[in-house]
């Protein structure tokens, strides 16, 4: 028994190590891909940020200085290698637009975004799960049709438009919430309270949560239908268990794990949606920084954001795999063979 247990632990360790290595390799590849894409771009950083008129008025030396600053004359491989070595030593470079270290900007923007992302992730998961359970409990019933319809409509709606409609209704017409930004306009940063921040993040978080429910709701519904048609439910019914008891004791437990796993794997969707939603609300988060960096050709910042978000997404996927691996014995067996 003990031997077997140790064996299993060792196998699990090897599996986990492999997964970590794989994720690390993928992150390196992500950085190479991102760097490649940025460096083949025909968009001239000088034209976009300085402007044609200003460039025309400058002397040759000034232009050369600017070109060196934006890295126009250095070959891409050299630039990538120097960036990568600096990155490994913990130096993520200096943002060309903000003229501050990338790590500092990322920390600040992530600090703004993290509550937004986290609350949207939790809310969409909880609501989606609840709706999916409700729908799957009685297939074809009115709740089922409502939830399926709702999910379809939400899936067909761009998240930025959801955000715009919420903005129109609750901020412009009803004036319940502020129109944009992460903090009150004109307030000193020390004077901003947590309540202010939450108040400003409410609408963006709501838009993101709504945009995220459809996949989890539909997925949970499928699983719930499967469970409700199973023989153990039939047997429980025959024993005379109440519907509430059926759902809580047999349904809930069986569909919780796939739902949590799916939610971990959908981190990427929520981050992607936040890019759009933050743009609508001018919320100073990671997504907005990505758009600014992309439009302005700020390579170090864009790379930093890509690597950071890819790392978050891979940790989400890893967590999903790990959950399955630890909890579901069938997969564990399949994985180590």
């Amino acid at each position: 028994m003990k031997q077997e247990r140790q064996n299993r632990l060792r196998h699990g360790g090897i599996w986990f190590g492999g997964q970590i290595l794989r994720a690390a390799a993928l992150i390196v590849l992500v950085s190479v891909l991102a760097f490649f894409l940025v460096s083949v771009s025909p968009i001239d950083p000088l034209q976009t940020n300085v402007g044609q008129a200003a460039l025309g008025a400058m002397s040759r030396e000034q232009i050369e200085k600017l070109e060196a600053y934006w890295g126009v004359d250095t070959p891409p491989t050299e630039r990538y290698l120097s960036w990568a070595f600096d990155f490994l030593r913990g130096d993520m470079g200096v943002s060309l637009l903000y003229r501050r270290p990338v790590a500092e900007i990322l920390a600040e923007k992530l600090g703004n975004s993290v509550w937004l992302l986290l609350s949207a992730w939790v809310c969409s998961g909880l609501f989606g799960f609840f709706l999916g359970m409700l729908a799957g409990h009685r297939r074809g019933g009115s709740a089922d049709r409502f939830v399926t319809g709702l999910s379809l409509v939400v899936a067909s709606t761009p998240s930025f438009w959801i955000a715009m409609v919420l903005l129109l209704t609750f901020a412009v017409q009803l004036k319940w919430f502020p129109i944009g930004l992460g903090v009150p306009i004109g307030a000193a940063s020390e004077a901003v309270s947590l309540a202010d921040r939450l108040y400003h993040a409410a609408l963006p978080a709501a838009s993101l949560s709504i945009a995220g429910i459809s996949s989890i709701a539909l997925h949970t519904r499928e699983k719930m239908i499967e469970v409700m048609e199973s023989e153990y439910i039939l047997f429980a019914r025959a024993r005379g268990e109440s519907e509430v008891c059926l759902i809580l004791r047999h349904g809930f437990r069986n569909i919780l794990l796939p739902a949590v796993t799916l939610q971990f794997a959908s981190v990427s969707e929520i981050i992607g949606g936040s890019v759009l939603v933050e743009q609508v609300f001018s919320y100073p988060g990671l997504g907005q920084a990505a758009v600014t960096a992309g439009l302005g050709g700020d390579v170090p910042l864009l790379l930093g954001i890509t690597v950071l978000t890819a790392a978050v997404v891979f940790s989400g996927n890893l967590a999903a795999n790990l959950l399955y691996h630890v909890i579901d014995p069938r997969i564990r067996k399949g994985g180590t063979e």
């Binding site: 968009i43 990427s268 990505a290 992309g294 864009l302 978000t309 996927n317």
Partner: peptide, 25 residues
Amino acid sequence: GMLIDLVLGIPHMLLLILISFACGR
């Protein structure tokens, strides 16, 4: 398999931004 993981690993919007930027919008 690696390519698939790579494309799915970068948030969709971000990859779109990167590729569109690479192709000159």
